[in-house]
Amino acid sequence: MTELLQVLAVEVLVVAAAMALTAYAARRAGRYSVVDTTWGLALAAVALVAAAGGAALDTGESWRRWLLVVLVAVWGSRLSWHMHRRNSGHGEDPRYTAMLAGASPLQRAVKVWVTQGAAVVLVGLPVTVAAVTTGGWPPMAAAGVALWLLGVSFEAVGDAQLARFKADPANRGLIMDRGLWSWTRHPNYFGDACVWWGIWLVSLTTPWSLLTVVAPLAMTYFLVFATGARLLDRHMEGRPGWAEYASRTSMFLPRPPRHTGRGPREAR
Rank of each mutant, 00 (worst) to 15 (best):
1 M>G: 12
1 M>H: 10
2 T>D: 14
7 V>M: 01
7 V>N: 08
8 L>V: 04
9 A>D: 06
9 A>Y: 03
15 V>T: 10
21 L>H: 00
22 T>C: 14
25 A>M: 06
25 A>Q: 10
27 R>S: 07
30 G>K: 03
31 R>P: 06
37 T>C: 09
42 A>K: 05
47 A>K: 01
47 A>L: 11
48 L>F: 06
48 L>T: 08
48 L>C: 03
49 V>S: 04
50 A>H: 03
50 A>I: 04
56 A>E: 07
56 A>I: 02
57 L>S: 09
57 L>R: 01
57 L>V: 07
58 D>M: 00
58 D>S: 11
58 D>V: 04
59 T>M: 04
60 G>Q: 04
63 W>K: 00
68 L>E: 08
73 A>W: 15
75 W>D: 11
79 L>T: 10
81 W>K: 05
81 W>N: 10
85 R>V: 11
90 H>K: 15
91 G>I: 03
92 E>Y: 00
93 D>A: 06
96 Y>R: 00
97 T>W: 05
98 A>Q: 10
98 A>D: 13
99 M>R: 15
101 A>N: 13
101 A>V: 02
105 P>C: 10
108 R>L: 05
108 R>T: 14
109 A>P: 07
112 V>G: 08
115 T>R: 12
116 Q>G: 00
116 Q>N: 14
118 A>I: 10
118 A>W: 08
125 L>Y: 04
127 V>L: 03
131 A>M: 02
133 T>S: 09
134 T>I: 06
135 G>I: 05
135 G>P: 01
136 G>I: 08
139 P>H: 02
140 M>G: 04
140 M>D: 00
140 M>N: 06
141 A>V: 01
142 A>T: 12
143 A>D: 03
143 A>H: 02
146 A>E: 05
149 L>N: 01
153 S>D: 05
153 S>I: 12
153 S>M: 12
155 E>I: 05
159 D>C: 11
159 D>A: 13
160 A>P: 04
160 A>T: 12
161 Q>E: 15
164 R>C: 03
164 R>T: 01
165 F>N: 09
167 A>V: 00
168 D>V: 01
169 P>R: 12
174 L>M: 14
175 I>D: 02
176 M>T: 02
176 M>C: 15
182 S>H: 13
182 S>N: 11
184 T>C: 13
185 R>V: 03
186 H>I: 06
188 N>T: 12
191 G>S: 14
192 D>L: 09
195 V>E: 12
196 W>V: 04
199 I>L: 09
199 I>Q: 07
200 W>S: 06
200 W>P: 08
206 T>Y: 08
207 P>G: 05
208 W>A: 15
209 S>G: 12
216 P>C: 13
218 A>I: 01
219 M>Q: 15
221 Y>N: 00
222 F>A: 06
223 L>T: 00
226 A>K: 14
226 A>F: 10
231 L>A: 15
231 L>E: 13
231 L>Q: 14
233 D>S: 12
234 R>C: 07
238 G>Q: 09
240 P>I: 09
242 W>A: 02
242 W>S: 01
243 A>E: 14
244 E>N: 12
244 E>A: 15
245 Y>T: 11
245 Y>G: 10
248 R>C: 13
248 R>T: 11
249 T>W: 03
251 M>V: 07
253 L>G: 05
254 P>A: 10
256 P>N: 08
256 P>G: 09
259 H>F: 15
260 T>A: 03
260 T>V: 08
264 P>K: 11
265 R>G: 01
265 R>K: 14
265 R>D: 04
265 R>H: 15
266 E>C: 08
268 R>D: 14
